[in-house]
Amino acid sequence: MTKQSENEIIRVEELSKSFGEHQVLRKIDFTVNKGDVICILGSSGSGKSTLLRCINQLETQTYGKIFFHGKELGKKQKETNEYRSKVGMVFQSFNLFNNKTVLKNCMEGTRKVLHLSKDEAHKRAISHLKSVGMAPFINAYPSQLSGGQKQRVAIARGLCMNPEVLLFDEPTSALDPEMVGDVLNVMKKLAGENLTMIIVTHEMDFARDVSNRVLFMDKGYIVEDAPPSEFFTNPQHPRAKEFLSRFFSN
């Protein structure tokens, strides 16, 4: 067991996940420190989403351990709930609550999980909605918003919990090209505010400019773990080389 540094938030050890016979994650090891902005890259099916979902406990690993501040995650529902309230997630398909307005979407977690007062929850919702530029839309329902707007609301919803880590699973992949920039700008801003983030993305420019670490996944393994300056200029693994050349050739 490695010694835990003061800045460590999440540590993943030998994490493996199989769906039936199909092994999707193989002995994943990595550590997330405070302030890290980690981008996970890799081709389709390499296990990126599954890794994030395991970290958030939406999937249970078949083998291996996840530690939060040095403590292994508990298996009880209560413990899982509490952990999730500190490790938020933003999904490719937004997953907003369709029966609630933008404002109520952002107050649900703070009211029902953190048990903040109505005023407090309202204040937080407005402040985060302002920071993603969605405050004027508090009375709209998700179905009345564009994809980019929905995703910014989803980010605000996550931020309202004051999470220690926010996980993003391809937050811009379901968006029209002209909306992508808005969402990436919001995430850039968050990185500037030192929010710890793990981001699965296909936005290479974003990964290069904003992250401090890139994990490259292939067939369930993390085959490269390097700062973006190294990863993008001098990738080691043949699959990473191939992946990058495919991206930057067109």
Binding site: R84, M89, F91, S93, F94, N95, F97, E108, K112, M161
Partner: peptide
Amino acid sequence: GQREGALALGMSPISTMFNIILPQ
């Protein structure tokens, strides 16, 4: 997805059922 959105906020499965899923 909506269920997962709620769970990811730390809402319990029961609270998710009553506040998000059942009303819809």
